[in-house]
């Protein structure tokens, strides 16, 4: 299988994703430049973290109009798996593929930390190798990760089991103290109704090798690879 990794001006986790796909999992991977209109045969598209267009106007707002994103949206609408990490999640909400928006962190500070997450839904293409209620540790690094949506949308996400990861403590308890950025319902990641588009603020690609402090992110990539 082949991963396509989108490179927007200001993406800075693109090489990490490429490294993990290629060197940790031995899969094909190719960068997809933002001006391209071709997904180059990718089976799964990753929108990596970073600060596309300097986060000008709103994070993800301008990147969303890159030519390649149009192709990604078409691919997603046809059922292709799309993983948006951090800035990629912000881009996905701006395209409307995922509901809600990522607001400025409640603390108004950039947060660079490792946090615990609870796997809420292991029936998606990105979480199949985890068990429900698994507690995993992943790095976060963002200024705008405070997930917000109106009450009806939040209720819809809960009812449809579309909340995939929530910030928790090490025991898997969803508490206020374990919420790093003020996100509604401690949301760290959500998927679309069909389950083929996942957006998440934590960085699974940064925790796929023990030498880098943990391997809890491997499950996300293994789950995708298992689908092919």
């Amino acid at each position: 299988m082949k991963f396509g990794i989108v490179v927007l001006p200001g993406s800075n986790c693109d090489h990490d994703c490429y490294h993990v796909a290629r060197h940790v999992f031995g899969k094909e991977a190719e960068f997809l430049w933002h001006k391209d209109r071709d997904l180059k045969g990718a089976d799964c598209v990753i929108l990596p973290g970073g600060f596309s267009y300097g986060d000008y106007l709103r994070p993800g707002a301008i990147g969303r109009f890159s030519p390649i994103i149009r192709e990604v949206v078409d691919f997603a609408k046809k059922g292709g798996p799309v993983l948006g990490i951090c800035n990629g999640f912000q881009v996905l909400t701006e395209t409307g593929l995922l509901p809600g928006v990522l607001l400025r962190n409640r603390s108004l500070r950039f947060i660079c930390d490792s946090v615990y997450l609870r796997v809420e839904n292991n029936k998606t293409r990105f979480t199949g190798t985890y068990s429900k209620k698994d507690v995993v540790k992943m790095p976060i690094a963002h200024n705008d990760g405070n997930y917000f949506a109106d009450e009806d949308t939040l209720k819809g996400l809960e009812d449809d089991d579309r909340i995939v990861f929530r910030y928790s403590n090490r025991y898997g308890e969803i508490t206020k103290d374990s919420n790093p950025n003020g996100a509604c319902l401690n949301i760290a990641g959500i998927c679309n109704r069909e389950g083929n588009v996942l957006g998440m603020m934590p960085h699974p690609e940064r925790c796929c090798e023990s030498i880098l402090g943990g391997e809890d992110g491997k499950g996300v990539f293994l789950s995708i690879i298992d689908c092919f």
């Binding site: 106007l57 709103r58 707002a61 301008i62 109009f65 909400t93 701006e94 509901p99 809600g100 928006v101 607001l103 917000f148 949506a149 109106d150």
Partner: peptide
């Protein structure tokens, strides 16, 4: 389309 995000 761009300048405002109707969600917020």
């Amino acid at each position: 389309k761009l300048l405002a995000n109707p969600v917020i």
